[in-house]
Nucleic acid binder design. Structure first.
Lengths: 246, 246
DNA sequence: TTCCGTCGTTGATTGAGATCAAAGGCCCGC
DNA sequence: GCGGGCCTTTGATCTCAATCAACGACGGAA
């Protein structure tokens, strides 16, 4: 699993990479490409970066140059508004693409920070555009990735606009569970990489409320919470919780 | 920075379905294209549809085939969730592109309805993808359009996640004002095409709350409200309202 | 190990917005 | 012009989550 280093003089955390050898093919950008096409992608996605917990991938205001695919680890993106408070806009795990929101203004509107030691692939955007002109399936898949991001954001809008605290937390846990499942991990047991405050920010709740809802869920036998460790005990009832509004 | 430009386009007698003759060039998909390239777009965007108030452009579940550019009028998109309540996800005016959220699943996740008599241009999506392979500037502009949608949604997430009722309504009014301005209309006086309930749904508030906030703004001399007719009296103070939390 | 800072939990109280309720206004079709 | 339905406003009350506050737990540094 040890990647080979290149040009350490430039950035010691930079490694060589190859989509064709990457186990995320089915999750990430290469989805649906032929072996031949993936090799072309390889030439584009050359740089991989390792990030320590707390390190930034990019900061709000940085010039947009590239997209970033999460290879391992866990990150958040957050938007800082005028009055100093920041809103977490997303949590990102293996195989997900970050930075799409920077295309429109050519500057990143938000911060992206690693919540644990992580590894990301750098995808120079103008080269991705070039390549996707030659590979229709890449082009189409990229459009789907962007569209999926829009759908995801709309789901959050719905959550924030019309759900009560318990429903929001339930939806959040189910979403994480489903994403871990898609990556071959347990659907019912995982570590939260983020603090209660970050969950709250994402869900439009205060950290105390998140904590209280966790406690209530625990009392009701829906989950077992121990700090950042979560075990979902009753997936069905959690699902009901978001289905049946009043 | 839009100087007065768009005035003649609303002449009801102009009916050419051609981007090259369309006064929305600067607002819509053709932005940044050469005359030659726009002519190629013309061949793609052939169909224009007129919609009566209340008619659907598409419905949730419909197969995704095309994007839709608003040529005139005003529309909303709304997401229906399992328990029957719908969340307005956006309001759409002249020059804006609808349907981007359908690309990912190849089905429209939401409904799109005209809130007044409207006219839309049908943009067959697979042909747009083809054409954007040949015209890099179209490709890039399209990516910007999608990205802008993501940024817009994140703005709404921030609004829903961290603003109080008055701030939300203020942000909403300022947003409309700014969008009308960009289209050459008055920044301070306009008709709301949607009901209080639709505003509330979009802002995560109940219709009564929206109404109360309008009344309070009126008392405070910020706006003059008369049913659906809005006049912004103090833009600066409205702006302050969203800047300074608490 | 101990100390300290961050993170999480829990309780008491407050407050913004939801809910319930009623009445008035506007628009559209007849 | 009239009637009915929808939209809007306003008041009274309730409720859920925010706020304020204190303490406890964990993890990293010395």
């Amino acid at each position: 699993m040890a990647p080979t280093k290149i040009v350490p003089m430039f950035n010691p955390e930079t490694f060589r990479t190859a989509c064709s050898n990457c186990s995320l093919r089915e999750l990430c950008l290469p989805l649906g490409l032929t072996g031949d096409e993936i090799e072309q992608l390889d030439m584009l996605v050359r740089v991989r970066k390792q990030l320590r917990k707390g390190e930034h991938v990019y900061r709000a205001g940085n010039r947009f140059e590239a997209l970033y695919a999460v290879r391992s680890g866990f990150l958040k993106t957050s938007l800082l508004n005028e009055d100093g408070r920041d809103q977490v806009t997303g949590f990102h795990m293996t195989g997900e693409i970050m930075g799409l929101d920077g295309i429109s203004t050519e500057h990143h509107p938000c911060d992206a920070v690693a919540l644990e030691d992580s590894e990301i692939c750098v995808i120079p955007f103008s080269r991705l555009e070039e390549l996707s002109r030659d590979i229709p399936s890449l082009q189409h898949h990229f459009h789907k990735v962007m569209s999926r991001e829009i759908v995801r954001d709309q789901g959050v809008m719905m959550l924030l606009g019309s759900m009560r605290a318990e429903e929001r937390v339930a939806a959040f846990l189910l979403n994480l569970s489903q994403r871990w499942t898609a990556r071959g991990y347990s659907a019912s047991e995982f570590h939260l990489r983020m603090t209660r405050e970050e969950i709250g920010s994402y869900l439009g709740l205060k950290l105390e409320t998140v904590s209280r809802v966790f406690s209530r869920f625990q009392e009701d036998g829906l989950v077992a919470v121990q700090q950042k460790h979560i075990r979902i005990l009753d997936l069905a009832r959690l699902r009901e919780l978001i289905g049946q509004r009043c």
